[in-house]
Simulated scan of single mutants.
Amino acid sequence: MELSTLWFLLIAVLFTGYFILEGFDFGVGILLPVLGRDERERRVLINTIGPVWDGNEVWVLTAGGAMFAAFPAWYATLFSGFYLPLLLILVALILRGVAFEYRGKRPEPRWKARWDAAIFAGSLLPALLWGVAFGNIVRGVRLDADHEYAGTLWHLLNPYALLGGLVTLTLFTTHGAVFLALKTTGDIRARANALAARAGLVAAALAVAFLAWTLLGVRGGAAAAVLAVLAAAALVAGLAANRAGREGWAFVGTAAAIALSVATLFSALYPNVLPSISDSANSLTVDNASSTPYTLKIMTWVALVFTPVVLLYQGWTYWVFRRRVDVRDIPDT
């Protein structure tokens, strides 16, 4: 396997990890005003992701860094052409991170309500825009002969990409509800379980429509079709486990559905990294967008050394904070 193809796969793995882990973070933030009926319940919801949310964001930073080093042409075209949507995602993530840190600095309900609104908006906007961004990456955009983006913002807001945004929004919401059912007890657990069942049906319908559109109307392939079927099966299995009250298996199901959906998109995309819909000769591929073989070789050795360390540390973090969170753990202020 060529190193350029290997790094294409590694970037797909990084985005998969990011969407699985940050996906339930986004879902918890979106559900904060829905499941958090009072201050103690809202604190329970935030505490479920408190020890891990910032570590989960490292995955997208690593993915962006890997794109910059392994595929500089892809990085340059993507981050210039998609500048406004990616800037909105960045601002939302910053606002959300600040909100987690500052909502407890003062006791006034109005102060907390404002930061709770920031957590909600900072979770909903990226959950929507990531789907829009990846929808455009898979569909393709207008590129000129110099591989520079030749479209406008409105070209990015096409029906296919907007449907992709709705898929990630509803899928992450479902994933977050399943995570809350897994990490809480009592009434919050029951309400999260019920909400996951309802949100999951919407997510399943939208995901099937989006994957079918991808395979039949945008770009397909036998491998992508198999992965799409497996993604749908994983989501159905996760919803069935949630209905049976098996939150652990339900979380595995929704996580697998996200992973297989990302795999479907990257499989359909390959060997392109950013197709051109104006002229296929202008498309960016794993070959014409990659760095030199020497650069990729150095990156591979660095990844082999440090990736296991990062995975072990993050796995240890989840193990330490594996216990369920209960309202009784929160002091009544």
Rank of each mutant, 00 (worst) to 15 (best):
L61K: 04
Y270V: 04
E57D: 13
A194H: 12
T333H: 15
T285H: 10
Y75F: 07
V98T: 09
L157G: 10
R110D: 14
I277T: 15
D25S: 07
R191A: 12
A241Y: 04
L171T: 11
D144C: 03
L201H: 14
T152M: 03
L95C: 12
L87N: 13
A113V: 04
Y102H: 12
G221R: 05
A121P: 03
S80A: 11
V286R: 11
A73T: 15
T295I: 08
F306S: 08
L239Y: 02
V226W: 06
W316H: 10
M1C: 12
F321T: 09
I30H: 04
A222E: 12
A66C: 01
V34C: 01
N282Y: 15
R43T: 07
A237T: 00
L35I: 01
F321Q: 06
V202C: 08
A212H: 03
L157M: 12
F321L: 06
L3I: 03
A257Q: 13
K112F: 12
A250V: 08
R246V: 00
L31W: 03
L201I: 15
A197C: 13
G97W: 08
A192E: 00
T174V: 10
W319D: 05
V58C: 11
T285C: 12
I277G: 00
K105E: 11
V138Q: 01
V44F: 00
W316C: 02
P331G: 05
A257N: 13
A257D: 13
A228Q: 02
L169S: 08
R323K: 15
N56A: 04
T173C: 09
E101N: 07
N282R: 15
N158C: 07
L153G: 01
G248N: 08
V302R: 11
I119G: 04
L157T: 01
F251D: 10
V325I: 09
A190M: 14
Y313H: 14
P33W: 09
N288H: 11
L239I: 05
S276E: 04
V226P: 04
R198A: 10
V138I: 12
L90Y: 07
W111N: 09
A150T: 01
L171C: 05
T264K: 00
D146G: 15
S291D: 14
A231T: 03
Y83P: 13
S276W: 06
G217R: 02
R42T: 03
A121N: 10
I49V: 12
R324I: 07
G186E: 14
V91S: 07
A289R: 03
V252T: 09
F134W: 09
G200A: 06
D146R: 15
V167H: 03
H175D: 05
A76V: 01
P85C: 06
V229T: 12
L227R: 06
N242L: 15
G64N: 03
A240K: 14
L162N: 05
G186L: 00
A127K: 01
P293R: 00
E108S: 13
L265A: 02
V58Q: 10
G140V: 11
L211W: 00
E22V: 07
I11V: 08
E101A: 07
A66S: 04
V320Q: 13
A150V: 01
P126F: 00
A145M: 14
